[in-house]
Computed example of a mutant assay.
Amino acid sequence: MITVHHLENSRSQRVLWLLEELGLDYAVERYARDPKTLLAPPELRAVHPLGKSPVITDGDVVVAESGAIVEYLTDRCGGALVPAPSTPEHRRYTYWLHYAEGSAMPPLLLKLVFSRLAPGSPVLLRPMVKAIAGGVTQKFVDPQLRRHAAYWEDELAARPWFCGDSFCAADIQMSFPLEAFAARGTGAGPRITDWLARIHARPAYARALERGGPYAYA
């Protein structure tokens, strides 16, 4: 039996959604974030040395990292939700599968980190920290996010899904960056908004929310 070690309000929600799309049986082991640090609890280290989510277990097999989990689960289903090999769609699939974490998530994480620096700093230093964090966000992070968002808009203007005419596992992988971007009020365009509406309307997405519980990706 596949077990998803599911950290609340995290990227592991994508794994639940993928499992629902694939029709695989699975169990959910839930973990709550530390209310002060918002970090994963130490119990996750018993599953994987880094103590992070997403991570799944399948018997004696332990798989961590979103992209690796997507590949493991789609391979387990004979390549379901993966475009045919040696096609333009498959090349785009490989790209978006890795782009989601390698390129899209870093500026989003930076924005989150810088937004929390000032509130967590000593009172006397708070104005200076706020000014520095705000300057970095305005001059570096936000321009990067706008560039990525424009890229997504252009790609979704060329095709309905990230890899082509059909929904695939790379769209699941891309969901968290686009959801986080839109939730933080950074100016999602009409094609991003439409794409998000279409993934949220998928029955498997709704079933994953029921299994995973409340999901705040902001």
Rank of each mutant, 00 (worst) to 15 (best):
L156I: 12
Y72M: 02
S66Y: 03
E8L: 04
T87C: 08
R184T: 10
S12P: 05
A201I: 03
L196V: 03
D58R: 05
L97N: 08
L22M: 06
R91K: 10
L44S: 00
A208N: 06
H98R: 15
Y31H: 14
N9K: 05
K111L: 13
W152M: 10
G135P: 01
P35Y: 01
A197K: 15
L38C: 04
A188P: 11
V4T: 06
F181T: 09
V61N: 05
V70Q: 00
A150C: 05
L44A: 00
G134W: 03
Q144G: 11
V28Y: 02
G102V: 01
E65C: 02
L125A: 14
P49M: 08
L196R: 11
Y72P: 01
V61D: 09
H90K: 14
R147F: 12
Q173R: 12
F114L: 15
L110K: 14
R116T: 11
P88W: 03
V136G: 11
P49L: 08
L156P: 09
Y26D: 07
Y72I: 03
F162A: 08
G213V: 02
Y99K: 12
A183T: 06
R147D: 14
P127I: 04
A197N: 11
L7V: 02
A158H: 08
S166T: 13
Y217A: 10
D25F: 01
Y99R: 14
A188Q: 05
V15T: 15
K36Y: 00
L22F: 07
F140M: 13
L44Y: 00
C77A: 12
D25E: 15
L145W: 09
P127Q: 05
E65N: 01
D165A: 15
A183H: 10
V129W: 02
L24N: 10
Y99H: 14
L97Y: 03
E8M: 05
Y26P: 02
G135R: 13
F162G: 04
V136A: 15
G164Y: 09
R92E: 13
L73A: 09
L22I: 04
T193W: 01
P107K: 08
W195Y: 14
I132A: 14
T57L: 06
G67E: 10
F140L: 13
R198A: 06
G23N: 06
R91E: 15
P85Q: 11
K139D: 09
N9L: 01
E29N: 09
L112G: 12
P88E: 03
S103P: 06
L39F: 13
A182M: 05
E155Q: 15
W17H: 07
A182L: 04
R146I: 06
Y217Q: 10
P190C: 06
G135T: 09
S10V: 06
L178G: 09
D154A: 15
F114P: 07
G135K: 12
R198D: 04
F167R: 12
